[in-house]
C-alpha cells in the first residue's frame, strides 16, 4: 500500500487574486515564513554539529500553516501544540535567541535549558507548549478554551496536532466535550501526510481528517496548507466562528514536511522525487514570493534584503545559543514545586 498523494497541485498555479491584501501584509507573511525556514535550517545545522541533541523536529515545509493561522488571532488568544513547535513560537513573537538557546540546552533558553526542543512555554505570549505526548495537547488545548468560557471572555484557543495524533482517543473525548459545551477552540490538524514513517492511508480509515468532527456536530474544512493566504482566510473564518460562541471548528491543513520526522530519521518511507515535487510545485515561501513579485509589491532585490536581515537574526540566535552558559547546577532542583 502506498501513502496518499500529497502532491495535490500539479498544474502551474493560477495567478493569485491579491486585491484583498496590501504589500505590508504579504511581506509580513513572507518574512515570518522565511524566518521559520532559516531558523530551522540553522537548527538542523547545529544538530549536525552536536550542539543540539535528542529529538529535534523541524517545521520546514509547513510554515504557511502557522503563519496564516496566527495572523488571524489577537491578544490573549492561546496557542498549544506538540513537539514540532519552533515555528509556532517564532510566529507568536517569542525571541529566536530564547528558542535556539533552549534547543542547545542553555540557561538563556525559554525553559532555562530544562525543557528542550519539545518543551517551551511563554505565559507572556500565551503559548502553552510544547508537548511530547502525541495527542495530549488536544485535551489541554480544549481546557484552555474551557477556561475562556469559564471566565466569560471572548478569547479563543488554537490546538494544533498532526495527522497521526488525529487517531488518539483523547482527541475524540475532547471533540465531544468541546461541542457539548461549545468551547471556543480551533482544532488545527497539520496533515503533513506522515506520522513518523506511517503514511496516512496506512493508519486512518477516514483520511479526510476534517470530517472527523462530523459525528460530534463539529464543522470541518480542508485547507491548502501550503498557501498562506488560503490558510489566513480559513483562519479568519474559524476564529470568527469560535469567537462568536458557535463552538469548536476543525481546519485540516494539507501540508508537507520536507525533512525527516526528527533529525535522526533517514526518511526511507518516501521517495526523494515525492519530496522534490512538493518543493518544486507548492513550496509556501516560493508561492508567496511569486505572488508578491507578480503583484508588484516588491522586487528580487528587496526580498534578498529581507533574507539577509533574517539570516542575521538567525545567526545572532545561534551565537547566543552557543554562548549562553549551561544552566547552573543549582537549577537542578528548582521549579519542581512552587
Amino acid at each position: 500500500m502506498s501513502g496518499s498523494n500529497p502532491k495535490s497541485k500539479k498544474t502551474p498555479k493560477k495567478k493569485k487574486n491579491v486585491s484583498n491584501y496590501d504589500s505590508a501584509e504579504l511581506l509580513h507573511y513572507y518574512r515570518e515564513m522565511l524566518q521559520i525556514r532559516r531558523f530551522e535550517e540553522k537548527a538542523g545545522q547545529l544538530y549536525g554539529m552536536g550542539l543540539i541533541a535528542g529529538f529535534c523536529h523541524l517545521y520546514i515545509g509547513q510554515e504557511a500553516v502557522v503563519v496564516g493561522m496566527q495572523a488571524a488571532i489577537g491578544d490573549g488568544d492561546q496557542v498549544i501544540t506538540g513537539y514540532r513547535d519552533h515555528g509556532h513560537m517564532l510566529t507568536l513573537g517569542m525571541e529566536p535567541r530564547g528558542v535556539m538557546a533552549e534547543l542547545t540546552g542553555r540557561a538563556g533558553g525559554y525553559s532555562k535549558g530544562k525543557g528542550g526542543s519539545m518543551h517551551m512555554f511563554s505565559t507572556e505570549k500565551n503559548f502553552y507548549g510544547g508537548h511530547g505526548i502525541v495527542g495530549a495537547q488536544v485535551s489541554l488545548g480544549t481546557g484552555l478554551a474551557f477556561a475562556n468560557t469559564y471566565r466569560g471572555n471572548d478569547r479563543v484557543s488554537l490546538a494544533y496536532f498532526g495527522d497521526g495524533a488525529a487517531n488518539q482517543g483523547q482527541v475524540y473525548e475532547s471533540f465531544n466535550m468541546a461541542k457539548l459545551w461549545d468551547l471556543p477552540v480551533i482544532y488545527v490538524i497539520e496533515n503533513n501526510h506522515y506520522a513518523m514513517g506511517t503514511a496516512i492511508a496506512r493508519s486512518s480509515s477516514e483520511t479526510h481528517l476534517h470530517k472527523r468532527g462530523a459525528s460530534f456536530g463539529i464543522p470541518g474544512v480542508e485547507v491548502d496548507g501550503m498557501d498562506v493566504l488560503a490558510v489566513k482566510e480559513a483562519a479568519d473564518m474559524a476564529v470568527a466562528h469560535a469567537r462568536a460562541g458557535k463552538g469548536p471548528i476543525i481546519l485540516e491543513m494539507k501540508t508537507y514536511r520536507y525533512r525527516g520526522h526528527s533529525m535522526s530519521d533517514p526518511a526511507k518511507y518516501r521517495t526523494r522525487e515525492e519530496v522534490n515535487a512538493v518543493r518544486a510545485q507548492s513550496d509556501p515561501i516560493e508561492q508567496l514570493k511569486q505572488t508578491i513579485l507578480e503583484a508588484g509589491f516588491s522586487d528580487e532585490t528587496a526580498l534578498k534584503e529581507i533574507d539577509k536581515e533574517i539570516k542575521a537574526i538567525v545567526n545572532d540566535a545561534a551565537d547566543f545559543a552557543k554562548d549562553s552558559p549551561e544552566p547552573d547546577p543549582s537549577e537542578l532542583y528548582t521549579d519542581v514545586l512552587a
Binding site: 533558553g109 525559554y110 525553559s111 532555562k112 535549558g113 530544562k114 525543557g115 518543551h119 517551551m120 512555554f121 511563554s122 505565559t123 502553552y128 507548549g129 510544547g130 528548582t334 521549579d335 519542581v336 514545586l337 512552587a338
Partner: peptide, 8 residues
C-alpha cells in the same frame, strides 16, 4: 512547571 523553567 519544571519543563517550563518555572513559568507554568
Amino acid at each position: 512547571r519544571y519543563m517550563s523553567g518555572g513559568q507554568m
